[in-house]
Design a protein around this nucleic acid. Structure first.
Length: 407
DNA sequence: TCTGGGGTCCTAGGACCC
DNA sequence: TCTGGGGTCCTAGGACCC
C-alpha cells in the first residue's frame, strides 16, 4: 500500500521564531519584513549567518556565510542573536500541533518533521490535511511552514523545498520528471558542495541527468553513496518515519576560541571543561562510552583528530578526562589552535552492560561519587552553578552550549 | 576580508588473527 | 627465495545534514 507522508519545514525557522518572540514582547517591528539575519557572535569568532529574512536572501545572503560578508551585501543589515531556549519552545509548539494528526512523527531536526499518516486519514485526503496544517500553524503559532506531500520521505522533503514561504507542494511519482528532474543536481538531498563538481565533470548537471545515469557506473565511482543518490534522483526511498527517539551514537562538545591558543596548559583547561559537559550529558542519557575523541582546528582551519579506546566503558568525568588528556598530548603539534572539541563514541546503555569481567559491585565502585553529587547540583541550579574547570573565563567561553540543540 | 556546533555515516589503510 | 586469503577491529579523515 502506498504510504501517506508529509514533510513540514519551518520557513526561515530561527529568524521567524525570533520575530514572533520579539513581537510578543512588544518589539514594534516584524524583523521578517526587513533585511535581517540571525547570526553568531563575531567577537567570539562565531559570526556566521544562521538564518536570513526573505529580503536578505534576495540580496544574496546565504546561510553559513560569515556575517562580515553578509554586511558587505547589505549595509543596513540587522543582526540578531540566536536563543535556543526560544527555538526549542516553538519547535515543541509545532510538534504538539502535529501530534493532533498522527503519533507517527519523526523530528528530523529542530525545524523539520516527517509525518506518516498512513491509516490516519479517516476519509480525508492527504493534501487537505497538508493545507490544514499549513493554515493552522500560521494562525495559531504565528510563523509559517512549507508542507511537502508524497508517498515517501525523500519526495516529501524535496517537495517542501519548492517555492517558499507558506506553501504546500505535492511531489508524487508521476510528477518527478516535471518537478524534480529539471532541477540542478545540487538541489537533491545529500548532494553537497564537494559532490557537485564531481558530477559536473561527468556531465551530470540536473537531477534528471543523475537519474538517467547508469546505476552500476555510479556504484563503481562513488560506492554506496552512488547507489543512494541514484535512488534519490529516481524518487526511491523506502525508509520509515521513525517516531521513537533513539539513543545518540556519539556525544560531543566543541568550542571556537575567542583567540588562537598555543599554550598546551590553556588547551588542557578547555579540554577539562569540554569533558565535564560531555560526560554530564552522557550520564543524563544513562549511557557509557568506549571511545574518546579529541579534535583540534588550527588557525589555518586544518582539522585533525585522534581517538583512544577507554580501558572499560564509562561515563565518569575523571576517566574520560584522563584519556582525553593523553590523546591531546599525543596529537598536539605545538601550533596555534582555533577550535577544541571532545567527543565520546561507541556508546552503550549502562543498564545493558555485559558483566562478564566485572561484578555489579565493581562497576558501582567505578562510578565516581563526585559525578553524582555535581550532577545533582547542576540539575537543580543550572549547569554553570558548579564546575571543576573552575576558571570563569572558560565557563563563559562554553556557556550554555549544553542545552542548545536538545528538544 | 572570514569561516558554528550538533550530529550520522562511509571509507581506506593498517594491525592482527586464523 | 617467494608466496594466500578472509575476517575483525581500530583509526583518521571526510562527506553530508540542519
Amino acid at each position: 500500500m502506498e504510504k501517506q507522508i508529509l514533510h513540514v519545514d519551518v520557513n526561515n525557522a530561527f529568524l521567524s521564531w525570533t520575530a514572533v518572540y520579539m513581537l510578543k514582547n512588544g518589539y514594534p517591528l516584524d524583523i521578517r519584513t526587513i533585511p535581517s539575519i540571525i547570526g553568531g557572535d563575531e567577537e567570539k569568532r562565531s559570526g556566521i549567518v544562521l538564518a536570513k529574512s526573505p529580503i536578505a536572501k534576495k540580496l544574496g545572503i546565504v546561510t553559513g556565510e560569515p556575517i562580515y560578508f553578509a554586511r558587505k551585501k547589505c549595509n543596513k543589515l540587522e543582526v540578531f542573536p540566536s536563543n535556543f531556549k526560544i527555538f526549542n519552545k516553538y519547535s515543541n509548539d509545532l510538534y504538539n500541533l502535529l501530534l493532533e494528526y498522527t503519533d507517527k512523527i519523526e523530528r528530523f531536526s529542530i525545524d523539520e518533521c516527517f509525518l506518516d499518516l498512513t491509516g490516519y486519514l479517516q476519509n480525508r485526503k492527504l493534501i487537505d490535511i497538508a493545507y490544514e496544517i499549513n493554515k493552522r500553524v500560521e494562525k495559531e503559532l504565528k510563523f509559517t511552514v512549507n508542507v511537502g506531500v508524497s508517498s515517501n520521505k525523500l519526495l516529501a522533503k524535496m517537495a517542501s523545498d519548492f517555492e517558499k514561504p507558506n506553501k504546500v507542494h505535492t511531489l508524487y511519482e508521476y510528477e518527478i520528471e516535471d518537478k524534480m528532474w529539471t532541477l540542478p543536481v545540487s538541489e537533491l538531498f545529500m548532494i553537497g558542495r564537494k559532490t557537485v563538481p564531481k558530477l559536473y565533470n561527468l556531465g551530470i548537471k540536473t537531477i534528471g541527468d543523475l537519474a538517467k545515469t547508469n546505476k552500476e557506473f555510479l556504484s563503481k565511482r562513488f560506492g554506496k553513496f552512488g547507489i543512494m543518490i541514484w535512488n534519490y534522483a529516481n524518487g526511491i526511498d523506502d525508509s520509515e518515519v521513525k517516531n521513537t527517539k533513539e539513543d545518540p551514537k556519539s556525544i560531543g562538545n566543541s568550542v571556537t576560541l575567542p583567540k588562537d591558543i598555543k599554550s598546551i596548559d590553556e588547551i588542557q583547561k578547555i579540554v577539562v571543561a569540554l569533558c565535564e559537559q560531555v560526560s554530564f550529558r552522557l550520564r543524563k542519557y544513562n549511557l557509557i562510552a568506549n571511545t574518546v575523541n579529541v579534535q583540534l582546528r588550527t588557525k589555518d582551519f586544518v582539522d585533525y583528530s585522534h581517538q583512544k579506546q577507554l580501558k572499560y566503558a564509562t561515563s565518569s568525568t575523571k576517566q574520560i578526562l584522563e584519556t582525553a588528556k593523553e590523546v591531546l598530548l599525543e596529537m598536539y603539534k605545538n601550533e596555534p589552535i582555533r577550535l577544541v572539541g571532545v567527543r565520546v563514541d561507541n556508546l552503550e546503555n549502562k543498564d545493558e552492560i555485559q558483566l562478564s569481567f566485572f561484578s555489579q559491585e565493581e562497576v558501582e565502585k567505578k562510578q565516581d561519587k563526585l559525578d553524582t553529587v555535581l550532577d545533582n547540583l547542576k540539575n537543580k541550579y543550572g549547569y554553570n552553578f558548579i564546575t571543576r574547570a573552575g576558571e570563569l573565563e572558560i565557563k563563559n567561553i562554553i556557556k550554555g552550549k549544553d542545552e542548545k540543540f536538545r528538544r
